[in-house]
Amino acid sequence: MHELSLARDLLAAIERKLDRSNARVVRVNVSIGSAAGIVSESLRFAFRVICEGTRADGAELSVTTIAGRSRCADCGIVFDFDGLIGRCPRCGRLGGELLSGDEMILRAIEVTDV
């Protein structure tokens, strides 16, 4: 359900950026950390729905996933992982301190001028 909140926030950010210009949105590029817990397909669906009737109607949402990065709570090594939580490749311990990978960033908007 938070994908819908995120899609709404994303559209609001796009509208703020485009303001009164006549641009139509063709594509939106976002980076989402794997540890943010956002399901890309759900986000694309929610975005498609939210954008109906707006200048981003039909725009493609391109999601780049950023790997999570954790420091192992046992052996201290830093490792990258996919998904919400990682397992240390050295000692096998699950979890650890999350260093990065829960970001949600609007990178760029591709537009055509109408």
């Binding site: 926030d9 950026k17 970001e103 990178r107 591709e110 537009v111 055509t112």
Partner: peptide, 18 residues
């Protein structure tokens, strides 16, 4: 005759208004 596509860089965190 199609309009060219231009890219606007943003690089902003989402949920910024919250």
């Amino acid at each position: 005759g199609a309009s060219a596509v231009r890219t606007i860089d943003v690089n902003e965190r989402l949920f910024a208004s919250n």
